[in-house]
Amino acid sequence: MTEYKLVVVGAGGVGKSALTIQLIQNHFVDEYDPTIEDSYRKQVVIDGETCLLDILDTAGQEEYSAMRDQYMRTGEGFLCVFAINNTKSFEDIHHYREQIKRVKDSEDVPMVLVGNKCDLPSRTVDTKQAQDLARSYGIPFIETSAKTRQGVDDAFYTLVREIRKHKEKMSKDGKKKKKKSKTKCVIM
C-alpha cells in the first residue's frame, strides 16, 4: 500500500485542523484551538488504489514558523489553505509557496490551493482571484467548507493525484537520464 505524506499549511484560523478532522473523523470542530502540530493517518481508496494518507496539520501562528522547514522537508505534497473571508490569509499563500519551493529546492512541488469556509456569506476573496492565482502557479484550486464537508475529500484526493503525477514524471525523467548515460565512448 502506497503511503502519501501530505502537509496542510496556511495562516492561523483558516480551518486547516477543521478540514483535516472532517476528512479523518467526519465531524466539524467549530471551536478554535490553535494547533502546534498534529499528525493523522487514514486509509482510503483513490482511483481504485488503496493508500495510506499521513497528514500533518501544522501551526499557522507566526511564533511556530521555525518548525516549518522541518515538516516541509518531509512532506510530499501540500494543501495551501486560505479562508475566503480573510484576504490576508490569501496573500500569505505566496509566502508559504515560496518557502516550500526553497526548502524542497524545487520549482515543481505537488500543491493544491484550497479556499476554505465557502459556506460563509462574508467572502472577501473572489473565486476568480483564487483561480487566477492557482493557474499562475500551475496547481489545482478547490473551494471547501469544513463545516458542510463540501470539497473536503476532493481537496485531499486531488493532492494525492498531483503527487502521483509528480512521481510518474520524475521516474520518466530518471529513465531518460539513465538511457543517456548508457551511451559509451570508444577510443581507438
Rank of each mutant, 00 (worst) to 15 (best):
V8I: 09
T20C: 06
T58K: 02
V9R: 04
E3L: 09
I36W: 01
E63V: 05
G60E: 03
V8K: 02
Q25C: 15
T35L: 02
E3H: 14
F28V: 04
T2L: 09
T50M: 10
Q43P: 13
D33N: 04
L56Q: 07
E3Y: 11
V7T: 13
V7D: 00
T20R: 02
G13K: 11
S39L: 05
T50H: 09
V7Q: 07
D57R: 01
A11D: 09
K42C: 08
Y64G: 05
V29L: 09
V29T: 06
E37I: 13
I21E: 05
Y4W: 08
Y4E: 08
E62T: 08
V45K: 14
I55K: 01
G60R: 02
I36G: 02
I55Y: 05
Y40D: 02
I55L: 14
E49F: 08
T58F: 01
S17M: 02
G12P: 12
E49M: 09
V8P: 01
T20E: 04
I55R: 01
K42N: 11
L23S: 13
L6G: 03
E37V: 15
T35C: 00
Q25F: 13
T2Y: 11
G15K: 03
T2R: 13
Q61I: 09
G12K: 07
Q61F: 06
E31V: 07
D30E: 13
G10I: 01
N26S: 14
Q61E: 14
Q25Y: 09
V14P: 10
T2C: 12
D33F: 03
Q43A: 11
A18K: 04
L6F: 11
Y64C: 05
E3D: 12
L19P: 01
L19M: 11
T35W: 02
G48Y: 08
R41Y: 05
T58S: 11
V7G: 06
E3S: 14
L19E: 13
K42A: 08
A18I: 07
A18T: 10
K5S: 08
L53D: 02
Y40A: 02
D57Y: 02
V29Y: 15
H27S: 15
G60W: 02
T20Q: 02
D57E: 04
Y40L: 01
D47V: 05
A11T: 09
F28C: 05
D38H: 03
K5W: 01
E31C: 08
Y40S: 01
P34C: 04
E3A: 14
V8N: 01
H27N: 15
N26Y: 09
S17H: 00
E37P: 02
V9C: 13
K5P: 08
V44D: 13
A18C: 12
T35F: 01
K16I: 01
R41H: 08
N26F: 06
T50P: 14
A11Y: 10
L53R: 03
K42F: 11
V14N: 11
Y32R: 03
V7S: 07
K42H: 11
I21H: 08
H27Y: 15
L19H: 10
E31D: 12
T58W: 03
V29P: 08
Y32I: 03
C51H: 14
K16D: 02
T35A: 00
L6W: 04
G12F: 08
E31M: 06
I24W: 11
E31Y: 07
T2K: 14
G48C: 06
